[in-house]
Amino acid sequence: MELLVASAIGVLTAAGIYMILRLRSFPVVVGMSLLSYAVNVFLFATGRLVINQPPILRDGVTSYTDPIPQALVLTAIVISFGMTAVVVMLALGAFIEASNDRIDLDGEEDGQ
């Protein structure tokens, strides 16, 4: 299981990094979403993987998963949404103002 999770995080990271190195705003936003997944799962996994032991207290149960990374990741997921929304809005604003969605200032402008 650890191998699956670790490789999945790696693939998400790699795909995210590749996407944020593109030159248009939408792929960058997609890349940041992918990176957010990777980071969230990474943080979650630092609590070590545990199956069938949710952090909900029950009588007679003594072993639980680590609740702290979960609490941190929960807010991180919501904040990631806020961040994505701001970035999308910025990208949209830039596109409407400039009539193109390049993220760089260098190079010749096209799409006019």
Binding site: E2, L3, V5, A6, S7, I9, G10, V11, L12, T13, A14, A15, G16, I17, Y18, L21, A38, F42, A45, T46, G47, R48, L49, D66, P67, I68
Partner: peptide, 27 residues
Amino acid sequence: LAIVAGVAVTGLIYALMTRDFAFPTMS
């Protein structure tokens, strides 16, 4: 570059997950 970074992250988290906490956690 993306692949190198992905492999690095994979290695890091795999190493973390296959080892116990170094100190008792707050959990």
